[in-house]
Every structure is written in C-alpha cells, then in structure tokens.
C-alpha cells in the first residue's frame, strides 16, 4: 500500500467494488439456472462457474477490507442497496437460456479485458489475486464460447433465440464500461486501459472478430456510456436480488458462507 497515495487508495476501492459486485451477482444469477440447464454437463458448469465467481468476489471484497473498507460479510449481507455497483447487464432478471448464454459470454469477454487492465495498477495483492482468478476464468471462457457455438450452429430456431438474446443484452452492454462511483477514478489511478472508452473499444474488437466466425450479424453501434450504468437508483432489479441474497442470513443470523 506504500505504493498508493490516499487518493489512489480510495479510487482503487471504488473500482474494486464494481468488479466484486459484478462477480457476486453473476454467481447469483447463474445459480438461478441450477438443475434447469439443458443437460447435466451444463448444470455442472453452472455450479462450478457460479461458485468460482462468488469466490472471486469474496477475494476482492477481502482486498477492499485490506484497503480499509468493511468486511466481506458486511459487503454481502449488510450493505445498503444504494452502495451496490453491479452493472445493469449482470443484474437483469432471468429470461431464457439463450439470453443467459449471451449475457455470460459478453460478461466473460468484458471481464477478461478488465482484468488485463487492472493488472497494471501497482497494488501487489490485487496482481496476485488476478493471477489466481485468471487460471479459473480460462475454463469459463472456453465453456461459454462452446455454448455460443452450439446456439449459432444449432439450426434456425436456436439461431433466432441467440439473435434475440444478443439484441436484449446489447442495449445494456454500455453499463459494463462505466465505473460505479466517479467516472474519473481511472484517471486518478493513471491507468488509461481502465478508461471506459478503451474498455469499449477492446470489447468491440474482440466481439467483432468472434461474431464473424459464428456468422452473426453485428447488432449495430452500442449506446453511449452513461454514468448511470451502475447506479442502484436506476436499477429496478437490484433491490430484489439483494433481498434474495440476504434471505437466509436474516432467518439464521449465525449462518455463514
């Protein structure tokens, strides 16, 4: 921490909370599909990837604690709804399987780009955490690309479902690129790769290349990145998710992770 000024310290905390919240909510939304996936292998994948994501979130919440923030337990069970910063895309209520596959695919592509950007922040604990996370995420991206391929080449109906999932998610993609608390956090950290516009460019380049291999039409220009993409006040699904996440703890206050 000697490497970070107090200003950077606080900017880093606010960036990490967005990342951790995305991971936590993706884990939660993924678990909603358990036992309902198309086949058992997908169920196994869902349980592993969801557990992985929640583990990654917990590790990032621990880093925030190391930086002087509240405990992981507080973050998950006691934090007021207005202090949550997941992207609108990851919080969307459950729809159909193809939408879940596309959401997961878009998220994994974005998350990999974001991890590569985060690694340039001079905070050793974060760099170590990202290294460990990266090894597990390699399985996630391989799995979800295979699912995209299945839908893309699974016949006309599957292709239509996929196109619909892409159209639904596309409108919410810009919410990924914004940073929760203050847009200038990436400037304070002097990390240009975290500039929302850089993240978007890298994301579009990556998606464009893969859409071509799947014969998928480009869904058109992305909407502009607005600062409300992670705003709790503008997120109609967040309060409900938070209530679900806290339900067991509220019935059994001594239960743990």
């Amino acid at each position: 921490m000697i490497l970070l000024t107090p200003e950077k310290h606080s900017a880093l905390k606010s960036i990490l909370i967005s990342v951790a919240d995305d991971e936590w909510i993706m884990g939660h939304r993924g678990s909603e599909w358990l036992a309902e996936a198309p086949d058992l292998e997908d169920d196994l994948a869902l349980s592993s990837t969801s557990q992985d994501e929640m583990g990654h979130a917990r590790l990032l919440y621990r880093l925030i604690e190391e930086l002087g923030g509240p405990s992981p337990d507080h973050q998950v069970y006691a934090r007021p709804v207005d202090d949550w910063y997941p992207a609108r895309l990851v919080t969307l209520a459950r729809q159909d399987w193809a939408e879940w596959v596309t959401r997961r695919y878009f998220y994994e592509v974005f998350d990999a780009i974001r991890r590569h950007a985060l690694i340039s922040i001079p905070f050793p604990s974060l760099a170590y955490a990202l290294q460990s996370i990266e090894r597990e995420e390699a399985y996630h991206i391989r799995y979800i690309e295979a699912q995209m391929t299945n839908l893309a080449y699974g016949g006309q109906v599957a292709h239509d479902y996929l196109a619909h999932g892409i159209a639904v998610d596309w409108a919410f993609i810009p919410s990924l690129f914004s940073w929760g608390t203050a847009e200038e956090t990436w400037q304070i950290l002097q990390c240009p790769a975290l500039d929302p516009r850089s993240l978007q460019q890298a994301f579009e380049a990556s998606i464009q290349k893969q859409f071509a291999t799947w014969d998928l039409a480009w869904p058109g220009p992305l909407g502009s990145i607005d600062g409300n993409g992670r705003s709790a006040a503008k997120n109609p699904d967040l309060a409900q998710i938070r209530a679900e996440l806290r339900a067991v703890r509220q019935i059994a206050p001594d239960s743990h992770w």
């Binding site: 292998e41 592993s48 557990q51 992985d52 399985y139 799995y143």
Partner: peptide
C-alpha cells in the same frame, strides 16, 4: 474429457 466441469470446482469428468 466428457465435461470440463465436475462435481467439485477442482475436477473435470
């Protein structure tokens, strides 16, 4: 490999 993911996080089938 029949499944990249198994019954626990650390195993494949």
């Amino acid at each position: 490999q029949s499944s990249m993911f198994g019954a626990t996080l650390c195993r494949s089938l």
